[in-house]
Amino acid sequence: MRRRSLLLAAVPAGLVTLAGCGGGKSDSSKASASPSPSVSSVPPPKIVDGPLPAITAGTKFGEKPTVAKGQGEPSKDLAVKTVIAGGGRAVAENDFIQANYLGQIWNTAKVFDNSYDRKSPLVMQLAQGSIIDGWRYALVGKKVGSRVQIAVPPTWGYGKAGQPQAGIKGTDTLVFVIDLVDVFNSKSSAKGTEVPQTDAALPKVATNTDGNVPKVTVPKTSPPTKLVSVYVLEGDGPEVGANQAVLCQFQGLVWDSGKTFQQTYGSGRLSQFSLQQMQEAVKGLAQGLTSKKVGSRVLIVVPPDLGYGDTPPGGGVIKKGSTLVFTVDILAAM
């Protein structure tokens, strides 16, 4: 399992997970416990241009930067500088961002965390209680493809308590270099290449990419008895590993009735879950997403023995022995 970022809260806000459908666990964290940033009651910071230490190496977008030690006293305000201006979509409050970053302490230049060495951008929600406030205020309005450098005083970082496990004191100003790789919200969809749907024995899935729920037409035939996982739209991103978590849009239907039991499309939310933990809730969904490419829409048909079997969640449309049909837009993996 990958090491969890120091920036994230225990459970990011604005998510739904499939544990709501049954008795499985749900948690978007990827590894060891990490303290949540405190929910700030202080007013928004004044944003200033500097001072900020020089980036001395790794100056291109996507390269691991080397940052000099801060000179003199840092600002008591939030210092923000767009080092490289991107041309992608602007980030809004409550969006999920995908970013590479490096963080170090102003007066020592000690690097306490970075995603470049993990070779996997971090996915996080820009929402109060999900991430330190310095990031929230600094990144709203910045565009995908941008490199942003910020200096975060304790008030909008970890406060007076600091972050002892990372060696951050309550008086430390933190310096970050952040490369904005992508941004997602509730209107995001897969953007892959259409794959012909030629098997009449499988549901047909719409290929709209406007964030609206794709229509699913279930054939009036007996469902398959084995797990099915096929592309509807095939993306060009990396394959999802069995030890990763995914950020996605999804809907789940029951084969026999065609009724939807849960979905994110049109709900104003996204879903984020670990495939390892999904093994405890809907094993077939976890297996069906493993090795599929980021950016894809996937049709997954889950037979009862890999779904809820004879113990469906109470009060819903899923019955004993139900075959489940999922469409999943894989937006990011981490």
Rank of each mutant, 00 (worst) to 15 (best):
S29K: 12
V175C: 09
T17M: 15
E93Q: 08
S34H: 13
G50Y: 09
R118F: 00
K76Q: 14
S274I: 05
I97L: 06
L52K: 07
I132L: 07
V140N: 02
E73P: 07
A57H: 05
G295Y: 06
G24D: 03
S291R: 09
V91T: 11
D182K: 02
N243Y: 11
V232Q: 00
V181H: 00
P44H: 13
V144R: 05
T221D: 02
N100C: 05
V302E: 07
A242K: 13
E239Q: 15
Q262I: 15
L227A: 09
A190L: 09
G235D: 00
L126V: 13
T217A: 12
V42K: 13
L126D: 01
V230E: 05
V298T: 13
D179K: 01
G241N: 10
G62C: 02
S274M: 05
A200M: 11
G237M: 03
T198S: 14
G141Y: 03
V218P: 00
S130C: 12
R2K: 14
I84H: 03
D256M: 10
V144Q: 08
F112T: 01
T198P: 06
T155G: 03
S296I: 07
I55T: 04
F273W: 13
A190F: 10
S120M: 05
D133K: 05
P312I: 14
N212E: 03
A200H: 14
P45E: 08
T17I: 10
G20E: 15
N185M: 04
Q125I: 10
F326C: 07
S115D: 00
I150T: 13
R297E: 07
F61V: 10
P304F: 10
I330L: 02
A281T: 12
A166M: 08
G103Q: 06
S120E: 02
P304S: 06
P43A: 15
T155Y: 08
L324H: 11
V298E: 01
A33D: 12
P196S: 09
S38N: 10
K259D: 07
G167D: 02
T155H: 03
K292F: 01
Y116G: 00
T207V: 08
N100V: 01
S5K: 03
A10M: 14
W106G: 03
L253E: 10
A92F: 13
S32C: 10
V91C: 09
F261V: 13
P53N: 05
